[in-house]
Design a protein around this nucleic acid. Structure first.
Lengths: 207, 207
DNA sequence: GTCTATACTACGATAGAC
DNA sequence: GTCTATCGTAGTATAGAC
């Protein structure tokens, strides 16, 4: 149990303070053990960091893979079914961004995106790639008039609407005029995003 | 000149490595001076950090205030003019996100958003607030059927489409299948965002 | 005003007790 | 396996030379 506790604490610390800023001593102390446990279990501070990335990827998978499985194995889709599928996926991602538990993961990933290293590689290969490629494929089904690049650009903007809830969390709170998002405010944001997905994917007559 | 150089270097280092990870010695050395200059000029490492926030706010203002001035003093707007104004503002913000010079500022701000402190306070008060409030006001003109909360939620999602270009830069590059965004790819992303703004703000008949 | 020298603290890693 | 003790390095801050 000390095992998982060490990882969870480390994700929080790395996310909050960055790789250099986080202290192995502080991580170990918060997890109720001593610094040399980290060396013993993970070899080094960097080993712990990579183990955090793998742990996050597994947790993200747990949240997203059920939704991905629901749309992934299917063949070519009817356009309006594809719109529905994208809206559902983006909603799932948006809801995830609002779960308190994912806050440390999100901070870790956002940090890692700014200067991607081996940890980002693992995250991308294990879960992010599947999410983006699935959305791109669905967007192409929803709007066949888009070419591959246009569908990829559109997918990025759809993702951005969910991402902003975490990446600019402080600004979101101020814009909504609160210190904590109420249930109703969260639902309003999610339904707004969902409506935008429909507007974006249906906004142009399909050829 | 050593003055500004110290700030620019510090913004890059703080953005990249975080407050704790950045070293005053390294910052001073990269700026061609010694660590004690920082103590002398800014009092402490934290004083330097706050000075960085003010410097960034001033630079952001230089990029955004001309566009804000263009739409701000006007009274109630025709809905389609308001849509046009929002599209122009979001485009300005999106283009800013893609300028190489703003990368260090963006990293600094994103970091600060994850655990906002006094530096975020300064950034928000001096420039971010004006941007968000202006967009909210324009969105309400563009879609009078939205109430205040809905307009705020919509504004957040519009901002998210620009933010993702920086906050998830590594994922954007992979999704677009490149290691650096070409001019054409940048333009594609911006035009996609612009089209989305139109789709979102015109997507519903106005009451 | 800018630098050198230094005080003090905390870091990651390792060796060895148990 | 888990802890204590310790090494070498690097951090911020300060005092004082020039």
């Amino acid at each position: 149990m000390a095992y998982d506790s060490l990882l969870d604490v480390a994700i929080g610390q790395f996310g909050e303070r960055g790789f250099d800023g986080a202290s192995t001593r502080a991580i170990a102390a918060e997890a109720g053990t001593v610094m040399s446990s980290i060396t013993y279990r993970y070899g080094s501070k960097e080993g712990l960091y990579l183990a955090c990335a793998d742990h996050i990827a597994a947790q993200l998978g747990g949240h997203l893979e059920p939704a991905l499985d629901r749309v992934d194995p299917q063949g070519p889709l009817d356009a309006s079914d594809a719109v529905e599928a994208v809206a559902g996926l983006v909603e799932t991602i948006s809801r995830m961004m609002l779960i308190p538990d994912v806050e440390p993961w999100a901070q870790f990933i956002i940090r890692e995106q700014q200067r991607p290293g081996p940890a980002f590689e693992r995250l991308y290969a294990s879960i992010m790639r599947r999410v983006t490629e699935t959305v791109v494929r669905l967007v192409r089904s929803a709007r066949p008039s888009l070419d591959e690049s246009q569908a990829r650009a559109t997918s990025i903007t759809l993702y951005g609407q969910a991402l902003v809830l975490r990446a600019a969390h402080a600004a979101v709170l101020r814009t909504m005029g609160t210190e904590r998002l109420s249930e109703a405010q969260q639902e309003l944001l999610i339904q707004t995003i969902r409506a935008n997905v429909y507007a974006i994917l249906k906004g142009e007559p399909q050829s």
